[in-house]
Design a protein around this nucleic acid. Structure first.
Lengths: 374, 374
DNA sequence: TTGCTTTCCGTAAACGCTTTCCGGCCAGTA
DNA sequence: TACTGGCCGGAAAGCGTTTACGGAAAGCAA
């Protein structure tokens, strides 16, 4: 017998039994009213609805989920820095993740799902993510949250979408951004338009597929166009952060070796660090060295010099990820699996081009990410 | 008899019964191992753990939650604009919400909770938020998500924390930012330091307690100091957005009426819109009109002119909100209820002061939000 | 050996809901 | 009046856990 099946007013939060009693029907009827199943007389429905309102009844999620087997929850795991180690620019760089979350949340809502968030601090490969599997119908995992092997394992247990990971064919569904196209466009622009030949590539963490892909695509394209990229052993490598790129660049500057004509970075925050280091050393970008980024975080537009970069549709990444996952969960036959979203070269001042507009101009009516990056 | 109680290998995801059978124990024992309850022989524990590993068993969240009555989930409801109506700056303005989410997520994790996200589009007051109640142990509601009355109602059903709302004593626990202190500091600075006397206040939506509080605090302080603020009927009111403030200011400019010496805005995005409109009209801030904001979104620092504003600890707001909510859920006797977090005046160029640094300078080592805003 | 405690583990009853199966009621027809 | 369908609503079986409750085994003193 259920907790409140006895007599009188139940103590805690009302259950479906309380509603049934109040409306003088069975719990089955209440459930049918709530889920609009089967045949119901209008009068009965109203009576039940009335009782629901009077008792402020809200169905217990877990019970409902357990019974129906459907949780209507999507898990999203992402990387975040330890709380106390976040500088102002680090925070800016989180914009990428934030945008993904936003896109995912919106799409999830559209499909009737909720978003369950789990931040993972890098290196802490506990089973947090695995536990998500039990709480959600499916899981979206951002790049670098899990080693590839564990992704494959997880994908066997639960619908899983890997976001912004390497494009390698895997057990999981991949949704990512066209790194190659973006880097090729940058290489093309720098070589063909500006006539540069000697480049350096500032990489993120070595473990990151995104960084690796970008570096390879860039290097290959530059070589194809007759330029050269300093070998990565020269120390052009950092950790995705502004501070890291700053230090790397400063060290390189003080080594006295000649600088390349352009420094191409795997992310915007790193590009900002490079610009900072150059400025501290009395060099000016783009006059002395050109610099480019990748992401197009909002600050990129407002920096001085404004940053030439590759825009990636971060928010769309989230929403498309959810779409793919829902397709997987609900087993839609025509659902697209792997998706590659387009990137777009954004030419501003840091490569040596004239700044397209004064900072802040063209501020209004720039449209949303989604429509801009199609 | 449970689904997989029959013979042979079960079909779907493994349940606790499968583990029990594999380890040759009862389900109670498995549960005990998983939750480290009661007495267990080491040998038995290992056998169970072994089976768990072999089957890749992950406990079913809902079942666990239903049984124990504890969901270990915190719901977070926030306002967001419709997906297709988001301009680039709107997106920047979401930084506030993003920061709150980040802080909340981190704190939630620290307490062993997950964060369930629900975005609410303004005006759409369906029962989305109510449904959260059934899925979470408690709910954090950001300002403007619900009318005050519904907040009070909800608070009766479920532990609830109201974030950044009006400070009015209510049924719910309030965590908010010291709007009054911030606005008083701005008023003080503009009157005492710059000698301004004639002000306008650009309000957000009228329905917003945050906007109202800021306006009242500012107006009162200015009057106390001998200045005056144009009555709000003069049309200095917008909708929190950059575009809205832009239009309002443009209209006012074209009306030909004399401008105030300073326009104080209830948010940074609106301040940017005002600056934009001034610039379009050939006026220069701060030379012709001073402008200030509220929030200190990252762009504020990099804008031209850099924005004098009030910094609020957004991320901390999220984490403190979670702390308060967990206190409520777990009924900690010594948990603090209402909390007011301090704000901080950030003086930059848009009020007429010399820009503290060139844009981008002092970029590194600025510390995290949390520690900066203590 | 007996009798008690201390460990260890299995049985079974919830938890609150969804859903299937079935039994009744009512109108319509012969 | 008796019978057939179409509708409606109740009883009950799970969903996969946790958690009393109690029984068996093991240890120890008498």
């Amino acid at each position: 017998m259920p907790a409140s099946g006895g007599g009188g007013q139940s103590s805690g939060t009302p259950t479906i039994y309380d509603v049934a009693k109040q409306a003088n029907v069975s719990i089955a009827t209440v459930s049918r009213v709530l889920n609009s199943h089967g045949y119901l007389r209008a009068e009965t429905r109203d009576r039940v609805l009335q009782a629901v309102r009077e008792l402020h009844f809200v169905p217990n999620g877990p019970a409902r989920q357990l019974s129906s087997g459907i949780k209507k929850v999507i898990g999203l795991a992402f990387i975040r820095p330890p709380e106390d180690e976040m500088s102002a620019v680090e925070e800016d760089s989180l914009l990428f993740t934030d945008a993904v979350i936003r896109g995912a949340e919106f799409a999830a809502q559209r499909f009737g799902y909720s978003l369950l968030l789990t931040g993972v601090t890098e290196g802490d490969s506990s089973n947090d993510v695995t536990a998500l599997t039990g709480k959600a119908d499916g899981v979206i995992v951002l790049d670098r949250v899990l080693p590839e092997k564990r992704v494959a394992t997880l994908a066997k247990r639960s619908p899983l979408v890997l976001l912004a990971g390497s494009g390698k064919p895997q057990a999981a569904v991949n949704v990512r951004v066209d790194n190659v196209q973006g880097m090729q466009a940058i290489a093309q622009h720098l070589v063909a338009h500006h006539g540069f030949r000697r480049f350096a590539f500032m990489a993120g963490k070595e473990s990151s597929p995104d960084s690796t892909t970008r570096e390879e695509a860039f290097t290959e394209m530059v070589r194809f166009l007759g330029g050269q990229v300093e070998p990565s052993e020269e120390g052009w490598s950092s950790d995705w952060t502004t501070a890291g790129a700053f230090k790397t660049t400063r060290d390189r500057l003080s080594s006295g070796r000649p600088m390349p004509e352009a420094i191409v970075c795997a992310s915007d925050p790193m590009a900002l660090g490079v610009l900072q280091a150059l400025q501290d050393a009395g060099l000016r970008a783009p006059r002395d060295v050109a610099v480019t980024g990748f992401d197009d975080i909002p600050i990129a537009r407002h920096w001085n010099p404004s940053l030439t970069t590759v825009r990636q549709p971060s928010q769309q990444l989230g929403s498309v990820g959810v779409e793919a996952l829902v397709g997987l969960i609900e087993d839609r036959p025509n659902a697209q699996r792997d998706r590659v979203l387009p990137t777009q070269l954004v030419v501003r001042a840091s490569c040596g081009c004239p700044a397209p507009t004064a900072p802040g101009l063209g501020l209004l009516n720039t449209g949303s990410w989604g429509s801009e990056s199609q």
